[in-house]
Write a protein that binds this DNA or RNA. Structure first.
Lengths: 219, 219
DNA sequence: ATATTATTTTAGATTTGTCTAAAATAATAT
DNA sequence: ATATTATTTTAGACAAATCTAAAATAATAT
């Protein structure tokens, strides 16, 4: 079966929201897709008839098996394209999200197989997120949230929790990127800010909000 | 300004039809896009208001300056993607048309610039068709139709006039591809069939229809 | 030159995806 | 436990892109 870009975007949004808070609401989906709750309801009904969702009005909804499979396939395409854009076309890792949002809807299983082979079957995208294989399986990365790291342990930044341009601007300013090696110096309970040291530089403090969007792999 | 996939497909169809018979008709466009004449008329009106077409009802239509610019940009994207698919993803030159039809609508000028650079600024696509540069300029290839070649002159197949799967099947069967070196042995006026020799093989005859779809560069 | 045929356009309907405003249901707070 | 607030759904409207059938125009054939 074939799905429209809008249908795919709804499935993907539900998938990502499910990762976070298990129960997904109509309003959350509307928010994420910059649309209205009523429009989401319309789409939920359609996706249910197509077998991608379990849905009872007012009772909530979850992805069906087929829905999850579709979501993973879209995520796979998105992340493979991101990998291509960064590693072959010289895009910055913070510039590729929008373009991958378009490319992920190109429909050709053979294309994706061949792209995967060309890229030599990468298992993580440039943001550190795992790339599902053609069966939807993906590695769980050992990354943990920066707020969960003990002081004095060196760790490598492996993912960021959002692609918002405000976040990316801030990271650029602080000279933090995927691959940056850092170390937690001290945690301040008052505002949950964290003092970190990047390589040999002078330590500086980052806010709780920023720390929560940073994922690292302990070294 | 941004255009829908359908708008872009109409502009591209008109551009390609203009290449052949200068005057383009509503029915020709409908035919090429597998749609109905009435739908094409609707679109013509819209494209006129957007400034892409010169159009007076019942009087015919041609691309405006902006329309031509848009068409060339779509053609550019299509051919660059085809080049990528064949030369980097190991697709056959006869398998890439459909996929490029999707990729050509991805909207990111920076992506295309970077793709062009990655491909090292190719000037011809895998079918032998020239790739417009970012200003819409392209080389005129010296290719001529096989029916216009004099006997005994060696020539290299450089393009095919259509991407229909029937044609590609026939070419595969006859072992003719882009790059094949051949020689016209004799032309038969009765049915305009042409006897050709491919490399050192036994000569064989091809129909007028087939000869007309083959373009070659005299060596 | 006019009648016939072919092409193009108009008129009105349909589908998809969206919206606003109102109604239905669920959650919460006193 | 009920009133208030928040969320979700329904009802009905709208724009884009398409269609069929009929009307308008152009091309052609005698």
């Amino acid at each position: 079966m074939q799905f429209s870009t809008s249908e795919e975007n709804h499935i993907k949004a539900i998938y990502h929201l499910q990762q976070i808070g298990d129960i997904v609401t109509t309003n959350e989906v509307a928010d994420r897709l910059q649309t209205k709750a009523a429009s989401v309801t319309d789409m939920l009904k359609k996706l249910k008839t197509k077998g991608l969702l379990n849905y009872e009005p007012y009772k909530g909804f979850t992805l069906s098996k087929d829905g999850k499979k579709l979501a993973l396939n879209i995520v796979r395409k998105h992340r493979l394209w991101e990998y291509f854009l960064v590693n072959h076309l010289q895009f910055g890792w913070d510039e590729v999200h929008e373009i991958a949002e378009e490319l992920e809807h190109i429909n050709s299983p053979l294309l994706i197989e061949k792209l995967d082979a060309f890229l030599q079957f990468p298992r993580f995208d440039p943001h550190g997120d795992p790339i599902p294989d053609s069966n939807g399986k993906m590695e769980v990365s050992k990354q943990v949230n920066l707020t969960d790291i003990d002081p004095n342990i060196k760790a490598e930044v492996s993912a960021v929790g959002s692609q918002s341009s405000e976040l990316l601007e801030l990271l650029r300013h602080k000279k933090i990127a995927i691959g940056t090696i850092l170390q937690v110096i001290k945690k301040f309970g008052f505002d949950n800010s964290i003092e970190i040291k990047v390589e040999k530089n002078t330590p500086f403090t980052i806010s709780q909000q920023l720390a929560q969007t940073l994922f690292v792999k302990p070294l």
